[in-house]
Simulated scan of single mutants.
Amino acid sequence: MKKNVTVYSKDGCYYCVMAKNYLDKHGIDYEVVNVSKAPEAMQEMVTATGQKGVPQLKIGDKWVVGFNARQIWKSLEE
């Protein structure tokens, strides 16, 4: 089952680049939301997870906070 994937990131975020590179490597399509330029997206992310740090990935209806390859893959498979 294909899931919608959104990467919430900021410019200059090394771990955000790692998360996007991981998704690219595995051929996973995703949307990028730069929370520095979209305060409403930042608020959505904080409301959902209680965390301000990036990257955060929304995979289907699940959230992965930080770059965690194992958790990303698990969320994609669920």
Score class of each variant (00 low, 15 high):
Met1Asp: 03
Asn4Gly: 13
Asn4Lys: 15
Val5Thr: 01
Val7Thr: 00
Tyr8Gly: 07
Ser9Glu: 14
Ser9Gly: 08
Lys10Cys: 12
Lys10Gln: 15
Gly12Ala: 12
Cys13Ile: 04
Cys13Trp: 03
Cys13Ala: 01
Tyr15Ser: 12
Tyr15Leu: 14
Val17Met: 11
Met18Phe: 04
Ala19Cys: 06
Ala19Met: 07
Ala19Thr: 03
Asn21Ser: 07
Asn21His: 07
Tyr22Cys: 00
Tyr22Glu: 02
Leu23Trp: 10
Asp24Glu: 09
Asp24Ser: 06
Lys25Ile: 02
His26Cys: 03
His26Leu: 05
His26Asp: 05
Gly27Leu: 01
Ile28Trp: 04
Ile28Ser: 03
Ile28Cys: 01
Asp29Trp: 00
Tyr30Met: 03
Tyr30Asn: 07
Glu31Lys: 15
Val32Cys: 06
Val32Arg: 09
Val32Trp: 05
Val32Glu: 15
Val33Ser: 08
Asn34Trp: 00
Lys37Asn: 12
Ala38His: 13
Glu40Cys: 04
Ala41Met: 13
Ala41Lys: 14
Ala41Phe: 11
Glu44His: 07
Met45Thr: 03
Met45Ser: 04
Val46Met: 10
Val46Ala: 07
Val46Gln: 07
Val46Gly: 05
Thr47Arg: 11
Gly50Thr: 12
Gly50Lys: 10
Lys52Gly: 11
Gly53Met: 13
Gly53Gln: 13
Pro55His: 12
Leu57Ser: 01
Lys58Met: 00
Lys58Gly: 00
Lys58Cys: 00
Ile59Tyr: 01
Gly60Tyr: 04
Asp61Phe: 05
Lys62Asp: 09
Trp63Ala: 01
Val64Ser: 06
Val65Ser: 05
Gly66Phe: 08
Asn68Ala: 07
Ala69Tyr: 03
Ala69Ser: 12
Arg70Gln: 15
Gln71Lys: 15
Lys74Leu: 12
Lys74His: 13
Lys74Thr: 15
Ser75His: 09
Ser75Leu: 03
Ser75Ile: 05
Ser75Tyr: 09
Ser75Cys: 11
Glu78Asp: 12
